[in-house]
Amino acid sequence: MENKVERAANGKNVSLPVSRVKLIMKSSPDVSCINQDALFLTTKATELFVQHLALTSYNNGSGKQNGTLSYSDLANTAEEAEPFQFLTDILPKKILARDYLKSLEEMEEEDDN
């Protein structure tokens, strides 16, 4: 018990800057006050989120053989893994312009029919 208290007091609990997280939270228009515990928890949750997103994307990704994590792995996670779907707008899948134009043509053909 004593050791735990000391560790918590000495070691840093979070590595992300709490002040920056607060700034982001306050940029939300309907938020007026945030207590210290809520701020700490959000900061900690963001760290867990970063780890979870990175690991999920890496494990399901294509670069596992050669040890790389690329953008497309993240975009896939956003599209496929349930809790990450709120990210689809900011992590869109990249497609070639050629493919996009083709799908656009197909859509137009369907509209004509």
Binding site: S27, T46, L53
Partner: peptide
């Protein structure tokens, strides 16, 4: 594991959006 620059930027943006969504 090598994390591409683009992937790092994407995760960072995702984290900001996560904060807003959670808030």
């Amino acid at each position: 594991v090598n994390v591409s620059k683009e992937a790092r930027r994407a995760i960072s943006q995702a984290a900001s959006v996560f904060v807003l969504y959670a808030t």
